[in-house]
Amino acid sequence: MSILKPAAALVLAVLALAVMQRTAPGYADITRPITVSGKLGERLTGRQFDIRVESVRLGRDLVYEAYGRRQTLTTNGVWALLEVSAEATTESVSIIAASWRAPNGARYVASKRPSTYPGMLSLQRLEPGLPKRGFILFELPRDQLAGGTVLIARTEFAPLDTEFAFHMDGIDTLPLQGELVLTADD
């Protein structure tokens, strides 16, 4: 009896320490941005801007015109082209960080390849009171479309800033177009 109590206390202490060590948040978790979740078509409000994903299109090639030349972007996977509308609420801002979190946890950062097309969201300067539309482009493997989440934030490393998470439900049922064309008036 006299050995049981200290032994039990020791076991309990070791257990508590083990649990604390396993669940201690890492640096990346402590400085994680604050997530605001929503669905396709839903308007979400964050710290510096509001945003809404208007539409998603899937295609094998992306075609656009820039500086008078026709550019074609090819991929081994699938292009997912998102059109979003956004408005700054407190200050002029540019939204440059977007990534697709696949169901297996992998993060596909938005493609920088169409960087000469002026309609891309990352090239838009959002002013308070003036909503704007822009495009975000992802290059994805075919099997990571279903159950994905699009994460949009002001910058890539945004500790404690807002990060919008749009759940892409039903994306895999969208038709896969041969060519996605971005026209001049988009």
Binding site: T89, T90, E91, S92, R125, E127, P128, G129
Partner: peptide
């Protein structure tokens, strides 16, 4: 209201 427009 405190909204700010930065130079463009």
């Amino acid at each position: 209201e405190g909204r700010r427009w930065l130079p463009s």
